[in-house]
């Protein structure tokens, strides 16, 4: 009962309330709704601690068992401890914390993001092949948008239109139409999933499929 019935009743009551409150502006409903939002933030604060503990545990186990690449785990734990200590001791507006943020975290994260440029190049080299009519259409559209989104596209003209104009048209119309189609399907799928959970039709998220 505690592992199945009560969670399902809870999901039904809270879910139904969250749907209904959207249509009822009464202050009582809004107060409860605001309370739910506040709880969401409070719970998030607590689970961050749970997450951090999980991370520490994961890396400690790796180090203890000397798993492959366990030295990286040492670096991860060192990073965690030093950032926390630097923040507590020197504050977050300056000192070692700000230094580490500016000169370690920022470049490290920027480097990860910049990998995208390299991966996009190798992936598009592999994927954009004129294997069929549809693949050729994709290839042509991809090249037009790639050139049209940079100043070079303004200098290349096809039939009186610059590649920038053609790429803008592709993004504004065929792209938006396709995206709307996907969005409508996604929206309905989302609503159906949410309703299935609220109504207790779908329970596999509780780890129980039947």
């Amino acid at each position: 009962m505690f592992r199945r019935t009560i969670p399902l009743i809870f999901a039904f009551v809270v879910g139904t309330f969250m749907v209904i409150q959207f249509f009822i502006p009464h202050p009582t409903f809004q107060a409860i709704y605001n309370g739910v939002l506040d709880w969401q933030q409070v719970i998030f604060g607590f689970v961050l601690v749970v997450g951090t503990l999980s991370m520490v545990r994961h890396h400690v186990i790796r180090i203890q068992r000397k798993k492959e690449g366990y030295r990286y785990s040492m670096v991860a734990l060192l990073g965690l401890v030093s950032m926390v200590l630097a923040g507590i001791i020197g504050g977050i507006r300056g000192g070692p914390y700000k230094w580490m943020f500016d000169y370690i975290q920022m470049p490290a994260q920027s480097s990860m993001f910049s990998l995208l440029a390299f991966f996009v190049a190798s992936a598009s080299y592999r994927a954009f092949r004129a294997r069929s009519v549809t693949a050729t259409l994709l290839l042509v559209a991809g090249v037009i948008v790639m050139l049209g989104r940079v100043p070079a596209g303004e200098y290349i003209h096809v039939g009186g239109l610059s590649l920038t104009d053609i790429s803008t048209w592709i993004l504004d119309y065929p792209n938006t139409a396709a995206k709307r189609g996907i969005l409508i399907g996604v929206g309905l799928g989302m609503t159906a999933t949410a309703l299935k959970i609220i109504l207790g039709i779908e329970t596999s998220y509780l780890g129980r499929g039947d």
Partner: peptide
């Protein structure tokens, strides 16, 4: 940054063209 982005896009188009020449 527009200069770098322009040349990088041109490079990618070049790679796509090379791949397609090989494919054809």
């Amino acid at each position: 940054g527009m200069d770098a982005q322009t040349i990088a896009h041109l490079f990618m188009v070049l790679m796509i063209v090379i791949g397609n020449v090989g494919h054809v």
